[in-house]
Design a binder for these strands. Structure first.
Length: 892
RNA sequence: GGGAGUUUAGCUCAGCUGGUUCAGAGCAUCUGCCUUACAAGCAGAGGGUCACUGGUUCGAACCCAGUAACUCCCACCA
């Protein structure tokens, strides 16, 4: 009770001393903006460029964005501090289907129907909506600390970017790679547009398989012969144009050449033969519905069957269905069942599971539909794009995605690029009265071409009608790395020449094909060069149950709320702690807690140093500690460098975390910390501040705000306005003294043993002890005396040549240590400890000997390995001997 | 149906070219601490048959084969 009260009280008292993330975040983000630290213009430095995967303009920040953009920001900030000209280009994507759907919904709320608007009217509303609500997400990214060059913000429907879309369309058309044709496409009846194969998400759905009896037409009599088909879509029987059976199916030989009647509407259709039909599925009879099934369509083509399309664009039945006209396809499915039953033509219904395609954007069930669409040929463009990745010019991280990428590129289908929407770039095709069309940049060009094509100079603009459809959103996104630098409008401008190819692309594997592959194609086709060198594929952010975070599940924390709670720095660190490339991130708020605790630790270390008083008359007693930390820092830097080189960001963060928390705070600061209310010497003080500055630098990419805040504290001296952590050069590598590092590790172990001794003997840390060392190794412990005494609270430290009696003892490496504790020795326990150690060493030795006595080992193992075994043997033997000595000493 | 991947401590993950008795880290857990930077902390400790079964090898978490579970991608069986 007492304890809790006191700690509460103390916390309340010290509240003003703690770091206030919110204030610092606002303050420094504006400061960075004001001083244009994010701004990049070409100069003589090496560029480092990232283009953001443009989020939907309608989007709001979710956890996926948080992860993705944290990674990009870490990379950008690090590059900036390493002296590169870092350029991170932000922007948003017009996302035609998603945005148009939102605008339609908004209009509906206002009582306006899209049908009643003209195209320009609708677009006016859409732009208005975009200006008002669009791009919120970019503002949210700022809260995260994203250091994008906001002056370069682009939108995929900016004039220049749209122009690039039109130009590339024309370019590809001229190459013969864009064509128009009637195809079976994936129709989204809700968005009322075609979508590409990639935008169809297949899900397993519980369905019914309906067994329907078709009457077989027989010329001879009234005999009622029936055949039964199985279908999941009874509402489409009215669109049937044949029944198909396998020619080898002996059950149905009697049906060859016959006809059958569609139930309810009694239309006569032929029974055709094709070995496409699987005999053992369903009944072996297949209804052929060319208008509403891709396979049936192909079958229909082969057998020259007519196509009867009974569905409207919105998924309702049209008059060709004859019955249930106007009903939605699913309502019709329900209603046709009793009708068939009444007619006695429904044999049975079975449960059935199958994969159904859903629209990625609207989640409506996709309807295969025949329609006139625009397509882009892919095979020619896919080849070089595949090569870049296979040859390693573009690296996918992690590499496992190369296989998937290859598989996709080798089996690529043409791309349906037209969308029956208004929000987007309208296809630059103009139809002439006679049905021909011309492709042109604008209507004047179109007219000119049209007049030429028709040899009719009388043709006027009024005679031309522009294609209503727009292009797929990805048809603008694939140009992004080029178009953001105006590489189409002005292919030789300074920006594109300097920044392109970009360096790293950070994105989700889900859009590897949608976007990444196509950018590679576009890069090659339009600039003859790859668009980026490395693709870092992030994982999906899931909750701790492994479920994808989604709005509908409500399992996604509010990112801005998290920032509010843990500080942007805390959340960034939390996101990165456990997210290796390509692995899903099982997000748990506890990671953010850890992140927050980390910045808190840094803050407190700062308070400690800040409150020190310097006494210039003091000598520096901390030479070893300082040299050790220098080496340790250099060592950690090497590791961190290596981790970054391999894009192991979590590990780079962890190495940084341990360096700061363990090495800097727990060891170094404790080593040099003066006693309470004692001053510190000048040299140690200044060296420590220099270390602290280096610590801030390596932390900055992960925790930009607190590091900038501390950077400007007077502890570090006066700063010029542009002297900021964000542009501070990364620390140089120090000379690494391996011997010092190794010896210090041993000294740390000695300290741990002393602490353990205290723990087990219940001796307070405040009670100082005497320590003797009998050194059997070459380590000069005298050098480390100061550290040992301070961290072990040892008041007397001496070297001895003989073992000390009446003392607790332990061994570190080969050396023996004694703490005299006359009244507190437990000889039995001491002996037990030694016996245990001996047992371990004997086992160890046995295993080593087993190898060394094994002829085949000696014959096959590499010399270094054998040498190593010999060393192990010698070491173990030496140690055993010491233990043996001590044991025999105890026996007396 | 085809392909890829994963499986190591309670959780999230390292473990590179097979070679210290190799089984690691962080978090969580447990024990002891009101130690003047920090209880959002300090000092310690305990956690694992490396999914399973075989094989190769002097030696396997690591290589090979098979099995199981999970994940993702691709695919037109009504």
């Amino acid at each position: 009770m007492n304890y809790w009260l006191k700690s509460l009280f103390l916390r309340a008292m010290s509240i003003s001393k703690t770091y206030q993330p919110k204030q610092a975040e606002d303050k420094w983000y504006s400061y960075w903006l004001e001083h244009k630290f994010f701004r990049s213009v070409p100069d003589e430095r090496e560029p480092y460029t990232i283009v953001i995967p443009p989020p939907n303009v309608t989007g709001v920040l979710h956890m996926g964005h948080m992860l993705n953009n944290t990674i990009q920001d870490v990379l950008i900030r690090r590059a900036r501090m390493k002296g590169k000209n870092a350029c991170w280009v932000p922007g948003t994507d017009h996302a035609s289907i998603a945005t148009e759907a939102k605008v339609v919904a908004m209009l509906k709320e206002r009582g306006i129907s899209k049908k009643d608007l003209t195209r320009p009217e609708f677009l006016a509303y859409a732009w208005e909506w975009k200006e008002k609500y669009g791009g919120i997400i970019l503002e949210q990214l700022k809260k995260l600390g994203a250091s994008c060059d906001w002056d370069r913000t682009r939108f995929t429907m900016d004039d220049d970017l749209s122009e690039a879309v039109i130009d590339t369309f024309i370019h590809l058309y001229k190459k013969g790679w864009i064509y128009r044709g009637v195809r079976m496409v994936n129709w989204d009846p809700q968005g009322k547009t075609a979508v590409s194969d990639e935008e169809v998400v297949r899900k397993e759905v519980n369905q019914k398989l309906y067994y329907i009896k078709y009457k077989v037409a027989s010329s001879d009599s009234e005999s009622s012969d029936f055949l039964t088909i199985a279908t999941t879509r009874p509402e489409t029987i009215m669109a049937d144009t044949a029944i198909c059976i396998n020619p080898n199916d002996e059950r149905y030989i009697h049906l060859h050449g016959k006809k059958a009647y569609i139930p309810l509407i009694n239309r006569e259709i032929p029974i055709i033969l094709d070995d496409y039909v699987t005999m053992d599925f369903g009944t072996g009879c297949l209804k052929v519905t060319p208008a509403h099934d891709l396979n049936d369509y192909q079958l229909g083509q082969k057998h020259h069957l007519p196509v009867i399309d009974i569905l409207n664009d919105d998924g309702t039945l049209n008059e060709k269905a004859q019955i249930l006209v106007g009903e939605d396809r699913f309502a019709a499915r329900k209603k046709i069942v009793p009708l068939l039953e009444e007619a006695g033509q429904l044999e049975k219904i079975e449960d059935y599971k199958s994969q159904i395609g859903f629209s990625e954007r609207t989640d409506a069930v996709i309807e295969p539909k025949l329609s006139m669409q625009w397509f882009c040929k892919m095979d020619e463009m896919a080849k070089p794009a595949l090569d870049y990745v296979l040859k390693g010019d573009i690296k996918l991280i992690p590499e496992k995605f190369v296989n998937t990428y290859r598989h996709w590129m080798e089996n690529i289908h043409d791309w349906t690029i037209s969308r029956q929407l208004w929000w987007g770039q309208q296809i630059p095709a103009w139809y002439l009265p006679d049905g021909q069309y011309v492709i042109a940049k604008n209507i004047d060009d179109a007219l000119e071409q049209a007049q030429l094509a028709t040899h009719n100079p009388q043709l006027t603009i009024q005679d031309l009608r522009q294609e209503e459809d727009v292009v797929d959103t990805w048809f603008s996104s694939w140009l992004w790395p080029i178009s953001v630098f105006d590489g189409f409008k002005d292919p030789n401008n300074a920006d594109i020449n300097y920044y392109y190819p970009t360096n790293d692309l950070v994105t989700a594997p889900e859009i590897l094909f949608f976007w990444v592959a196509r950018m590679i194609m576009a890069g090659h086709e339009f600039r003859g060069e790859l668009p980026f060198r490395n693709v870092y594929l992030t994982g999906i952010v899931r909750d701790k149950l492994g479920r994808k975070m989604s709005k509908s599940l409500g399992n996604s924390p509010d990112p801005l709320g998290l920032i509010e709670k843990y500080g942007a720095d805390g959340v960034r660190v939390g996101m990165l702690f456990s997210s290796p490339a390509g692995n899903d991130l099982m997000f748990d708020e506890s990671h953010c807690v850890q992140g927050r605790n980390f910045w808190n630790k840094v803050w407190n270390a700062f308070l400690l140093v800040k409150n020190w008083q310097v006494d210039d008359t003091l000598e520096n007693p901390n030479g070893i500690a300082i040299n050790w930390f220098k080496s340790r820092f250099g060592q950690a830097m090497t590791e961190i460098e290596e981790d970054f080189a391999q894009y192991r960001l979590s590990e780079a963060l962890m190495a940084t975390y341990k360096l700061v928390w363990d090495d800097f705070c727990a060891w170094y600061l404790e080593m040099i910390k003066p006693a309470y209310e004692h001053p510190i010497d000048r040299e140690t003080y200044e060296q420590t501040i220099a270390f602290f500055e280096d610590v801030l630098k390596i932390l900055h990419p992960f925790m930009p705000f607190i590091t900038e805040e501390l950077w400007h504290d007077e502890l570090f001296g006066a700063r010029a306005p542009m002297d900021c952590c964000i542009v501070a050069p990364m620390p140089e590598f120090e000379q690494i003294n391996t011997q010092l590092l190794e010896e210090t590790e041993i000294v740390k172990q000695v300290i741990t043993e002393i602490r353990n001794t205290r723990n087990s003997k219940q001796i307070s840390p405040k009670e100082s002890l005497t320590l003797s060392v009998k050194a059997n190794s070459d380590i000069n412990y005298d050098q480390y005396k100061a550290i040992l005494c301070k961290l072990g609270n040892i008041n007397e430290f001496n070297a001895v040549n003989e073992k000390v009696s009446d003392a607790v003892s332990f061994m570190v490496s080969k050396d023996e240590f004694y703490i005299p504790l006359a009244n507190n020795i437990d000889p039995v326990a001491e002996k037990e400890k030694l016996l245990k150690e001996r047992e371990y060493l004997e086992g160890f030795l046995k295993s080593v000997d087993a190898k060394l006595n094994n002829e085949r080992f000696m014959k096959n193992a590499k010399p270094e390995v054998i040498e190593n075994e010999l060393r192990k043997k010698a070491d173990a033997e030496a140690k055993l001997k010491i233990i043996q000595d001590r044991l025999s000493g105890l026996a007396n």
